[in-house]
Amino acid sequence: MPRSMDDRREKREWLLRRNCSLSPRQTLVAYLALCALSLTVALAFLLQGVWQVLIFTMVELAAVTTAFILYARHAADYEHIVLTAGSLLVERVSAGRTSQTVLEPYFTRVAKPDSPRSLVQLEAKGTTLQVGSFAPAAQRRRLADELQQALRDQKR
């Protein structure tokens, strides 16, 4: 069925998020359980007069705290791509920092990933962006195909 002019100009969106196995609440519960267990063991040894275990427990908890903080900072990272009649907006959020790049759809070229580890490349008027860092290889190829088709539809 042929598309009308309005159908081709509708907004298209793609949202690529990290695949996080734990929610923020689950992460906090796991962290607190690990801290409680480690401190319980360290205190048991401290009561037996082996104070050195407490030092190693503090080093361990410092490392675990650092890891959990890094995990939490990047758990909400995403890439949001929005194609409208007049622009292709790529919004990236990483560790709470947002960056936005606007490309002109008519001049945008999509380069498909050429290997399982490479990303989708968008090029327009001297600006080059790579997207798809949160998607597996098959999803990146599908994203490139969908973007190419949507951009072609816009040019008709």
Rank of each mutant, 00 (worst) to 15 (best):
S99N: 12
E10M: 11
M5N: 13
R73S: 07
A150T: 02
T84N: 01
D7E: 12
S23T: 09
D145P: 00
T27E: 11
R92H: 07
A75I: 00
A111H: 14
A72G: 06
G96L: 00
S115Q: 06
A150R: 01
I55Y: 14
L83A: 01
V41F: 08
L15N: 06
L119R: 06
G126W: 03
V93W: 08
V50I: 15
D153F: 08
K155A: 13
A124M: 04
P136A: 09
I81E: 00
A36S: 09
T65R: 08
A135L: 12
D153I: 04
Y78A: 00
A30K: 10
R12D: 07
A42N: 01
R97L: 10
E91I: 05
T66N: 14
F56I: 06
V102Q: 10
L22P: 03
Q52I: 15
K125A: 14
S21V: 15
L70N: 13
L34H: 15
V64W: 10
P24G: 02
T40E: 08
A144C: 05
A33G: 09
L15S: 08
L151F: 01
P116H: 05
S38G: 11
V59R: 05
D77G: 03
R92K: 12
L39T: 04
V120K: 03
Q52D: 15
R156F: 14
V131H: 01
L22E: 06
P116Y: 06
V120E: 01
L129R: 02
V53D: 02
R25N: 12
E146D: 14
T101F: 05
A30F: 14
Y78H: 10
P24N: 03
T40I: 09
S87M: 09
P113D: 02
E123W: 07
Y78W: 03
K11I: 15
Q100Y: 08
L147K: 05
E79G: 02
S87E: 15
G126I: 01
R3A: 12
L143W: 01
Q52F: 15
W14H: 03
D145Y: 08
A36E: 10
S21R: 15
A33S: 13
E104F: 11
A75V: 00
A138D: 14
D145F: 07
A67I: 09
V82S: 02
L22R: 06
L103A: 04
R18Q: 11
R17A: 06
C20R: 15
E146L: 06
F56R: 00
D145H: 03
E13H: 04
S21W: 13
D6G: 09
L122G: 05
L47V: 07
D153P: 06
V59L: 10
P105Q: 02
R97A: 14
A63C: 14
A138I: 07
R92D: 07
A76C: 11
G126N: 04
D114I: 13
V131Y: 01
Y31E: 05
G96H: 05
M1D: 15
A75K: 06
R92S: 10
R25Q: 13
A76R: 07
S94K: 13
A150N: 03
P113S: 04
R109Q: 12
F56K: 00
Q26P: 02
A75C: 08
V50Q: 13
E79Q: 03
D145L: 09
H74W: 07
H80Q: 09
L147N: 03
T65I: 06
V90D: 00
A36N: 06
V41Q: 03
K11A: 11
A85K: 07
Q148T: 11
K112P: 10
V102M: 05
F56M: 06
C20F: 11
